[in-house]
Simulated assay, not measured.
Amino acid sequence: MPSCVHDAALLCKIGALRSFALDKIYYWRERASGMSSLAYFMAKDTIDHFNTIVKPIVYLSMFYFFNNPRSSIWENYVVLVALVYCVTGIGYTFAIFFQPGSAQLWSALLPVVLTLIATQQKDTIIADLCYTKWALEAFVIANAHNYTGVWLITRCGSLQSNGYDISNRSLCLWVLVANGVIFRCVAFFCMVVFQKH
């Protein structure tokens, strides 16, 4: 599961960089003529919601049948949609705040570092601040829900070894979505206040 979270986050974050990195000249020209920055930002984000819905389907069409997890495609899809929404907001922030080369570097490094923190320092405050911890927990819980009978021992062992609670599935999804909203606000703030776009 860590590789699933890392790969999906990396690909979607780099894909989100294009939303705000390619048309800076057009944005400044239109803004100078009186266009609303909020309307521009919301329009770009709304168009990207199509990718937020479609990318998890494409990813699951390959990942699901190779790994054959116990959780259903629908359960994995819901987690991936929340994860893609979260990392897209981070990608917006990087695209607006950094130059294109630095934004790509940060987009590649951040999932690796946060995945290491989430898997190596599970019970720390730093891990709780990492979106990767919540995505990993959501995937493990989705799998654990489908263990029955004698496999309940395996489920308990899996949850206990990772320090996860099976009742936290909704919390994990809400934290991922909240991260996406927060990073969108940060990206908009950088675009307007620091004139980074």
Rank of each mutant, 00 (worst) to 15 (best):
L17S: 03
R29D: 05
A21W: 08
D48F: 06
Y26L: 15
E30L: 11
N67E: 13
A32E: 07
N67Y: 12
Y64T: 08
E30G: 07
F94I: 06
S107F: 06
G89K: 04
F94N: 04
P69K: 04
Y59G: 01
Y26N: 15
V58P: 05
D23C: 06
V87C: 01
P100H: 08
Q104T: 07
L38F: 14
I57Q: 06
M62T: 13
I96C: 03
F94C: 08
Y77P: 02
R18W: 10
F41G: 03
G89T: 10
T52S: 00
Y64P: 04
A16E: 03
I73A: 11
G91Q: 03
G34N: 09
A39T: 14
L80K: 03
T46V: 08
F50W: 08
F20M: 11
Q99F: 09
T93C: 15
A16D: 02
M35Y: 04
F63Y: 11
D23P: 00
V58R: 10
K24L: 12
Q99A: 14
S37M: 13
S19Y: 00
N51G: 15
T93Q: 11
L17V: 09
A43Y: 02
R29F: 12
F20I: 02
I53T: 14
L22A: 05
W106D: 00
L17E: 05
M62Q: 09
D23I: 01
G34W: 07
I90Q: 06
V87D: 01
T88V: 12
F41E: 07
L22S: 05
R70W: 01
N76V: 00
I25T: 13
F63H: 04
M62N: 09
R29E: 10
N51V: 10
T52D: 01
A103W: 03
L22P: 00
S71W: 01
N76K: 01
G15P: 00
V79Y: 01
Y40D: 09
P69C: 11
P69Y: 07
T88P: 03
V78W: 06
E75D: 12
W28S: 13
F41A: 08
G89S: 12
R29A: 13
S19E: 04
E75K: 05
S71R: 01
H49D: 08
T46H: 04
L80T: 03
A95Y: 03
F50D: 01
S72E: 13
V78N: 05
I90R: 05
I73C: 09
R18M: 14
V84F: 10
I25Y: 07
L60F: 10
G101R: 06
I96D: 00
Y26T: 15
F97C: 07
Y40N: 12
G15L: 14
N67V: 13
G91W: 02
K55V: 11
I47T: 08
I57N: 02
L105P: 03
I57H: 02
V54Q: 06
W106M: 14
K55D: 08
S33V: 06
V84D: 02
G89L: 11
L105A: 15
K44R: 14
L17Y: 04
L38N: 06
S19N: 04
T46S: 12
T52G: 01
G89C: 12
V78I: 15
S71T: 11
L17G: 02
G91H: 03
